[in-house]
Computed example of a mutant assay.
Amino acid sequence: MFARSLFVGVLVTMWGAPAFAEEPTARVVKFHGYTEAIEIKLGKTRAVLCPQAGGRVLEFSVDGADAMYFEAAEKNWQPGKPGPITAGRFDYGPELTVTPHPKAWGGEWTAEITKTNSVKLTSPPEDGGIQLTREFRLVPHGKSVGLSCKQTMANVAKETREVCHWGRSFSPGGGICVIPLGDRPSRFPSKYAMYEDNTVINVKATDERIRERDGFLEILAPPRKPKLGFDTYAGWLAYVMPNDTVFVKRYPTYPDRVYNEAAGLTLSVWSPNGPQIELEPIGPREHLKPGESASFIEDWWLLSHPFPKKGQQIDLKALAEQVAKQTIVTK
């Protein structure tokens, strides 16, 4: 459902001097079963957004290489027939205590393409009192183009609510997840927490598929338990994929604020034995009085980077330098 103030194809200069001859464009497209998807494009970078089910990213690609895992069963989506919600998902928590919010998770959102060819998606208000907006824009930086993803959580209830941002995007499995530990000591002896089951969070876990090296953790393959949590304040993670690309997420962290997930996490990764991996930046606790709102931004980048051959390993220093040079944090 589109807002009446819909603008398509209006080109204006934004973010100062552009790094590309053209400017971002936006248009309504069909994407498998979705008939009202919105494509935003700049150069070889393309994002496809979904207002019809869950207000999310269906594709984020550069020159055809896609950072998103889009489940085959979702290709047959039809209005009124709930199906899987995959690819570039966002959510809000805290996970164990948040009120269910099916309208935001999989319901129909309204959409607006702005005069600057950014896209604003708005959820229905939830019975639990939270309404979401998500704003997406392509951001040029040198030869790279990132996708800025801003989620705003508004309290439309009559009572105070406490929530936190929770990114939950799916990427194709088979890659290596790299997590910088930063310069603050972890609270967890293992530098990560492993969710053993629904009631036990193990902060002294060991797993041969999770390696600490040169100030980073590497998830080399699905561990014995898929859900992992981290308390790093470095503010980015990288997922190196077998197609010689790296999916980078950058996001703010707040060492002096409370994080209200059960283990005080700033980041989670769900890595099962299967075709996808979930990369999950987490925001701090937001104490929202009626009428108040809070926002959180994830910046996504898809860069060229070699996947290590058998017997080799990622050059972590070079990867960190690439992230610093080829990506930026937006506001």
Score class of each variant (00 low, 15 high):
308 P>L: 00
118 S>M: 08
290 P>Q: 12
106 G>N: 05
38 I>C: 07
50 C>R: 10
154 A>L: 10
73 A>H: 08
74 E>T: 05
61 S>E: 04
44 K>P: 08
9 G>R: 12
145 V>W: 04
213 R>Q: 15
42 L>K: 02
109 W>M: 11
258 V>Y: 15
298 E>G: 02
233 Y>I: 03
113 I>L: 06
40 I>M: 03
226 P>H: 12
67 A>W: 03
86 T>F: 11
305 H>D: 05
219 I>E: 07
140 P>T: 02
210 I>Y: 11
254 Y>I: 00
66 D>Y: 06
69 Y>L: 09
223 P>C: 03
45 T>F: 03
155 N>K: 02
159 E>I: 10
179 I>Y: 07
119 V>T: 06
316 L>S: 04
36 E>K: 15
179 I>C: 08
290 P>V: 11
264 G>W: 06
133 T>S: 15
162 E>F: 08
178 V>F: 12
8 V>P: 10
331 K>Y: 15
310 K>M: 06
211 R>W: 09
297 I>G: 11
119 V>Y: 10
221 A>L: 04
85 I>D: 01
302 L>Y: 03
289 K>L: 09
109 W>Y: 14
274 G>M: 02
59 E>K: 15
118 S>E: 13
174 G>T: 04
190 S>W: 09
82 P>D: 00
58 L>W: 06
11 L>G: 12
245 T>C: 07
6 L>S: 10
186 S>V: 01
253 T>C: 11
193 A>R: 14
